[in-house]
Design a protein around this nucleic acid. Structure first.
Lengths: 212, 212, 212, 212
DNA sequence: AATGAATGAGTATTCATTCAT
DNA sequence: TATGAATGAATACTCATTCAT
């Protein structure tokens, strides 16, 4: 039987399913046939929406980054928010998108794709964050010499270190590291202690933590 | 024609070749047939030494980590070296092993394997480095609250940020980042400025830097 | 060039071809590549229809048994036939199916598959025959104490003894054995001499008998 | 380390091991490498004793048949035994050899080789049994028209029907069939009821019977 | 007699992609 | 837009056999 859907809808459905499988089993180990089986669509349908399997990878990454950028956009320009509040909002935005994309569920097999996402985050999102930091520096709340690179370093470290597919810390190991990372960030960025505590949610967010 | 070699030799030969190809084209895109063709051995020979393609991946990583650990071993226990000198020696050791394994040549396709190596480095090498840092702290040369996690953070960040397969900075972008990372490390670890300058070699080491 | 067929048709085509080859060369010595080459289809097509090489074996056996059962079905329930006539019809049905499946052409290499077929025949077909025998016993035409087991014994013996892949009797050896087997069956089942002469066709049926 | 053994011993050891594996996993699914691993011998050693894998199959069958023939030999010529006693002794001999060769342990995978053994039994052992039957007929104890073929039929039927790799009857199904087969044999061979009860041991011999 | 490294042909299976309907 | 049958190249892995020591 043939089910017709709104193309935009279909496209999103395929992307979501593909990402879910890519994160679970890795890009290489996910067959196109599996993606379409998951949504009860013919193999050919996939190729209506995407030129190739490689193609959907780009689409996924673009969708992910765009989603975050969309959420961030308004925040960044908001004159009523302090720099710290902006960063907080951004971290929440990222958390929301991560959860929407099931970013937390991925296994060691899905490292490859998570990898590419981090790279894009550094290239597209980090500069925006760095601008906000600079802005905060002008306001005297931040005190950091190299906002951009410092942000790059901590974003990369945080994303890798707390990637459940790469390192699997137990509950206390994880908490220790999150706390320390935040403390180091606060001192590096020259903000008051506790200013970055909101990052805790993002870093441990939605994660199932292995028992005590 | 049939060429028999010392098994230990053969094994190493296969590992070296496999790693070279994995870094160049990625694990998934390297066929076993290609590995053996490179050393003029029959495909069966590969399976005489390794249970599967997956199996050699583990062997490669183990060999790499073991190589570094071997080089480090004597350094770590040497009573005549200061903590800083030890770290410097370790960074050289790592550099040497990297060069021996052609670690610098890898392309974006080789991300997957580089990934696994970072994880192992953090698990196996970082603790040793952290011990040395603690030792240096006792001697009053270092001043850092959380040696282990701080080392983890900077090792991960450095390995990712300067991984040519993930980020391809141009010459000046790269230099800027290396310098800043070192500066941040020095301040985080509470050492005198310039103490970590030896890291520059490791971080840019042997790399072909694009343009300029 | 791409030739699309009715899936049911294709499936049958593959089964027929596979069986032909399995009987000729044996299951183990028949490559999937050979099967598809025989019908000018891509190797992928095979796997579109069957999960594995093992899978088609099951399909073949099921198809064979089902074919016979289909032919038998109407006969078994026919009120106008005597028990003897039913058995005769069944033996013809079996002969027809055997010929349709080229069952007679198989060589020593095809023993493995023939084996599995015998087992299924005993499990699925023999009980039906035994029922008919019991029915005939009530009518006073048969006189046998253990219809089921007796049928099992003679079916197994007949199928094995006259399996050209296992025993290759010459013409006279074969005839002797067929005649004697029938005579023993008649006495065992308590029927009049000659009642089972129709079995001769089935047992030697379509066989190329090695010259006198 | 290199262990030298009496060649005859080694040969037997290899044959035993090969048969054990062939019966368990089937000829096709048993690798030569596996056979040698089981007895801690190098691959090359296998080829010292046997020309090929096919070759050992013949050796196994020959050894099996020869073993039985050896045991039978003296019995067949013994003037002090009646025909019935001879058959009984033969059935015991066969049972002993079967047990020595673990004939009872084989699975569905080992059907292929069991098959070939049956064929050889019919060709080599059955004629001897038939001679004894004829002899017994002269003595008036047997009364059968076609000793050879009748023996063939019942030997084949018995071997197949009670082959645990082909049919897996439960305890009562098995007993029923054994009893009936014996009864039919007795009437076919014209011997007194109970004369063949010794066959029961051979037919169910050493078998692990599935619970009640 | 024994070793075990090396061979290499053989093969099942996967899977991205195409295309006629 | 959607289908799903068909494609066919790609590839990991097996295994009987050989051979130099």
């Amino acid at each position: 039987m043939r089910i017709t859907k709104d193309p935009e809808e279909r496209r999103k459905e395929i992307i979501q399913t593909a990402l879910k499988l890519f994160l679970k089993k890795g890009y290489a180990h996910t067959a196109v046939s599996e993606i379409v089986k998951n949504i009860n669509v013919a193999q050919g349908t996939f190729y209506h929406y995407f030129k190739s399997k490689e193609d959907i990878l780009d689409a996924i990454i673009e969708t992910y980054i765009t989603s975050i950028l969309d959420e961030i956009e308004t925040v960044a320009g908001d004159k009523n928010l302090t720099a710290l509040e902006k960063l907080e909002q951004i971290s929440y935005a990222q958390l929301r998108v991560n959860q929407r994309f099931n970013m937390n569920l991925h296994s060691i097999k899905g490292v490859d794709i998570h990898e590419r996402l981090i790279a894009q985050v550094v290239k597209k999102i980090v500069p925006i964050m760095a601008d906000i930091v600079s802005e905060g520096a002008k306001a005297g709340v931040f005190n950091v010499k190299y906002p951009l690179v410092a942000t790059e370093i901590f974003m990369v470290a945080g994303n890798m270190l707390f990637d459940p597919g790469i390192f699997n810390w137990n509950k206390s190991e994880l908490e220790t590291r999150v706390d320390i990372l935040i403390e180091l960030m606060e001192s590096t960025f020259g903000v008051r202690k506790g200013s970055f505590s909101f990052y805790k949610k993002l870093m441990t967010g939605g994660r199932e933590i292995k028992g005590e």
